[in-house]
Design a protein around this nucleic acid. Sequence first.
DNA 1: CTGAAAGCGCTTACAG
DNA 2: CTGAAAGCGCTTACAG
Lengths: 351, 351
Amino acid sequence: MATLKDIGTELGLSTATVSRALNGFPEVNAKTRDKVRKTADKLGYRPNRSAQRLVTGRSGMVGMIVKIRPDLSADQTFVEILTGLTAALAKRDTDLVLAVDQDPDPVAAYKRMLERDMLDGFILNAPVPQDPRVDFLTQAGVPFVMHGQCRNDAAYPFYSIDNQGVSAEAVGMLTALGHKRIALLNGDPGHAYAADRLAGFAAAMRSADLRVPVAFMAGAAPSESFGYAQALAMLAGQHGTPPTAFVCASTLIAAGVMQAVEDRGLRVPDDVSVIAHDDALPQTRAINFSPALTVTRAPLRDACAPLANHLIDHINGTPARALQTLLRAELIRRGSTGPVPSGGEMPWPST
Amino acid sequence: MATLKDIGTELGLSTATVSRALNGFPEVNAKTRDKVRKTADKLGYRPNRSAQRLVTGRSGMVGMIVKIRPDLSADQTFVEILTGLTAALAKRDTDLVLAVDQDPDPVAAYKRMLERDMLDGFILNAPVPQDPRVDFLTQAGVPFVMHGQCRNDAAYPFYSIDNQGVSAEAVGMLTALGHKRIALLNGDPGHAYAADRLAGFAAAMRSADLRVPVAFMAGAAPSESFGYAQALAMLAGQHGTPPTAFVCASTLIAAGVMQAVEDRGLRVPDDVSVIAHDDALPQTRAINFSPALTVTRAPLRDACAPLANHLIDHINGTPARALQTLLRAELIRRGSTGPVPSGGEMPWPST
DNA sequence: CTGAAAGCGCTTACAG
DNA sequence: CTGAAAGCGCTTACAG
């Protein structure tokens, strides 16, 4: 394996100059730089990471700890994130070191990993409302980036979609179509994103002067069967007057809802409108629904590069406040939403 | 962060002795070793990996490259493997660096990773019959361990279940119960494991003097719907006289088969016997089937520690031939297999 | 049983 | 614009 020294010897230069040339320092002569680069290529030079790391004090590795969850949707999003993340990190010359966590203590795995390895930072995902990992890593002085938002006063880098906005967007569209009885089939309420969706939903309904019976705001790990069961019960009037529209946390839930609508002998969008949030996973494409699904869209894949870059910029010294991205989801109207059916123009009766 | 030097200063010892004591060299005085260890603990000493790696030429990292596959079962097994693997590697003080591959060239991702990083080795999975990665890494002189087997003459470490034996076991059990018309619902024939299952199946049937029409040996990525569709067609006689028993590549396929049997108005095991290979994934438990599923069982999780250890032993110099494990799956008889029904004692008629 | 010394391959003040 | 030098924190022959 060629070293800086080899290149220097070949060219009659010091390793210092070779190092500067390769690292693009502005002071080196352009001709020198070219010669060095050419020779490096010729010799197949690859910097020794361990040496670089030893002298810079950086490891060039960031960690990610994933919780195993039995539900499949988690796996889907996990693979999606992993794909984009490793690609984005590679561009920044950084490795992703992965661990799978089974410990009930939410920070134990982070402690272990920090002890075993030199890691420059962490990527956190699936935040819960007051995430204990945030406080732990902040106190330990370890840089991290959060995929999502949680309310620990947020003095750290994050990338998240505006989950309150997602609900507001959906409710706004539906009320404009005359809907007044709108149900929310939400994600797991223990997760921050679902808490935000709920908050946004409640606020949007309130500001439209509409109220929602509690039974029409359900939350669980997103699955088709959850959507199906909930929608079926609601449409059957088991919780009172049925809704005319459903806001779904995911396309998977929406698939269940649409099946329930069909099984009740109703039609989308004539009798019931359906809108979902769409992470743009390759497995469930909203456009293939029948009718095509109206969505608030924010591809999960788009989060990967910003996450990687936020983290590495933060490691390199950019202050956290400058690395906080809240992305507005895009509203895409397709066939699954329509005007409120007659008989649906009345809000839920007060109980 | 405390260094060897700090410990040495505190104790009036050289860094050399401290290093030896911490690394358990036999020549150091037991008392010295104890003192050193105690002081190391007190100071919260953690070896600097980069320095260790620089001097030893090892990175303490192994790579794994996963192909993204749209089918969910792959994700399940992937998460299962990842969980066990990171735990087993951690015990050997080794990190798992992960990349997700989307390149059609099967070795491109390995090349890239090798260029970017210092990796001590790779863990390969999902081998195809003549796996190009084996030849590439062998020629590059990079250690690796294979999860599974492929026929590249196998001068490398591997851990695999005996997939030919899996089929032989299943066929043996069924023929002992009098079955003569046995169908195979196999995995994707492009994968080495499925090729072996098929070979084992064909050989076992042949040595029992039974023949199988080609239409009764189907293969695809394991899914419930594949099992359902194939079994339904076979039981409906679409390919000729129906089989009396099914050998399934996975419990997922078996679930589809059992549904098909029920939808045809038949019963397991009275009319049809079903046996499957069981990776013991937490999501689909063979024991929860109704009736409980007879299986050849080899928990995927059990592969993780051997894989990690084989690789690291190989990196440390153990010859490949000493690191080749072929595990026999365990046959577990439950309620889904029974004696051949009357009318099924005759083999498939020759066409 | 322990130590002094060299060296792994880099980066980066400090000079010039 | 380039070089000589020091140093990052370890390991490991080589002496004693």
